[in-house]
C-alpha cells in the first residue's frame, strides 16, 4: 500500500462515520438554533434508535420472509425506527424541556441529564448491560480500487445520509414550516408576534432531530455490528463537538463539522494510534474554536447593548 492509499482509506472510513456524526449533529444544531438549548439527551436518543433497530430486526425475523427480501425490508426498519425516535424526542421535549422554557438557562440542562440517565438505564434494564450483536442487514460486498477498499455498506450509509440531509435542506428552505423555523431561530419574539406557534415549531425541531438520530443509530449498528447502552454518550459528545465545530445553529455547518470530525478522527486513528484518536478530535476542535470562535460556518454575532 502506498501512503496515498492509506490516506484515501482513512478518508473513506472517516467519511462513513462522519456522516453518522453529521446526522446526530443536525439534531443538536436544529434544536439549538430554534430553542437555544443544548439537548444533552440527544446522544441517548441515537442509542435508543440503534436498539429500536435491533428490535425491529428481531420482530421482522418472526415474520415469514426470506433473507432475499431484506433490501425491501430495510426501508421499513428505518421508517419504524425513525418514527419511534421522533416520537420519543417529542415526548422528551414535551415533559422535560417545555415546562422549563422560561426557566434559568441551566435548568433544562439538568433535566436533559436526568433524561439521559432514564433512557440509558431503561435500555440497560430492557436489553441487558452486555454488548448486543447488531446484524449488518445487507450482504456486505467489498469493492477495491487499487488498495483502497470500500464496502457497499459504506456507500449506502453515505448515500442515505446525503439523501436525508438533502430532504432536510429542502424542508427548511422551501416549506412554510421551514420558513417558520428559520424565523424562530432569527428572533423568537418577532416570530411570535407574526403568529408563529412556538411550541409547535420546537416540537417539529425535536421530531426532525430525533428521527435523524434514529437513522444514525441504525447505521451505527450496521457499521460496527455491536451496540451498547453506553454508546450514546461518546457519540453524542462527538456529534455535539461536530455541531459546534461547524457553528452551532447552522445546518450546513453541522454536516461539514460531522464529516470533518469523522475524517480527522480517522486520520488520528490511522496515523497516530486509535487510543489517541479522541484526543486528536477534541484537540483539533479546541484549536479551530480558538481561531474561529463561532465555528467554521457560524456567523459572528455582534453584541448590542
Amino acid at each position: 500500500m502506498t501512503p496515498l492509499d492509506v490516506f484515501l482509506q482513512q478518508i473513506v472510513n472517516g467519511l462513513t462515520i462522519g456522516m453518522i456524526y453529521a446526522l446526530i449533529a443536525l439534531g443538536y444544531t436544529i434544536v439549538y438554533g430554534i430553542a437555544q438549548l443544548i439537548n444533552f439527551a440527544h446522544g441517548e436518543i441515537f442509542m435508543v434508535g440503534a436498539y429500536f433497530g435491533l428490535l425491529a430486526y428481531t420482530l421482522i425475523q418472526l415474520l415469514p420472509v426470506g433473507s432475499v427480501g431484506f433490501l425491501f425490508i430495510l426501508p421499513l426498519i428505518f421508517l419504524f425506527v425513525m418514527t419511534l425516535t421522533a416520537l420519543l424526542g417529542v415526548i422528551v421535549e414535551r415533559f422535560a424541556y417545555r415546562p422549563l422554557r422560561e426557566a434559568p438557562r441551566l435548568a433544562p440542562l439538568i433535566t436533559a441529564i436526568g433524561v439521559s440517565f432514564l433512557l440509558q438505564n431503561a435500555v440497560m434494564i430492557l436489553f441487558g448491560p452486555a454488548d448486543k450483536r447488531f446484524p449488518s442487514l445487507i450482504e456486505i460486498h467489498k469493492l477495491s480500487f487499487h488498495h483502497v477498499t470500500i464496502t457497499n455498506l459504506q456507500i449506502m450509509i453515505t448515500g442515505f445520509s446525503l439523501i436525508l440531509m438533502l430532504v432536510l435542506h429542502t424542508f427548511i428552505k422551501y416549506t412554510r414550516m421551514g420558513k417558520a423555523m428559520r424565523a424562530l431561530a432569527d428572533d423568537r419574539e418577532a416570530a411570535c408576534l407574526m403568529g408563529i406557534n412556538v411550541n409547535q415549531i420546537i416540537s417539529i425541531a425535536f421530531l426532525i432531530g430525533s428521527a435523524l438520530a434514529g437513522a444514525g443509530g441504525i447505521m451505527f449498528g450496521m457499521y460496527y455490528n455491536t451496540i451498547n447502552f453506553h454508546d450514546g454518550y461518546l457519540a453524542g459528545l462527538k456529534a455535539f463537538s461536530a455541531a459546534v465545530l461547524g457553528g452551532i445553529g447552522n445546518i450546513p455547518g453541522a454536516m461539514v463539522g460531522g464529516v470533518l470530525l469523522g475524517i480527522l478522527e480517522g486520520m488520528g486513528a490511522g496515523y497516530i494510534s486509535s487510543e489517541w484518536k479522541n484526543v486528536f478530535a477534541f484537540f483539533i476542535l479546541i484549536l479551530i474554536l480558538l481561531f474561529r470562535p463561532h465555528g467554521l460556518l457560524g456567523s459572528r454575532v455582534v453584541k448590542k447593548v
Binding site: 422549563l100 435548568a107 441529564i113
Partner: peptide, 17 residues
C-alpha cells in the same frame, strides 16, 4: 439510576431556579 434520573427531572420541574 432510573429513579435517580426521574428524580432529577422532577426536582428541576418543580424548582427550575
Amino acid at each position: 439510576m432510573l429513579f435517580f434520573g426521574l428524580a432529577m427531572i422532577l426536582m428541576m420541574l418543580f424548582r427550575p431556579q
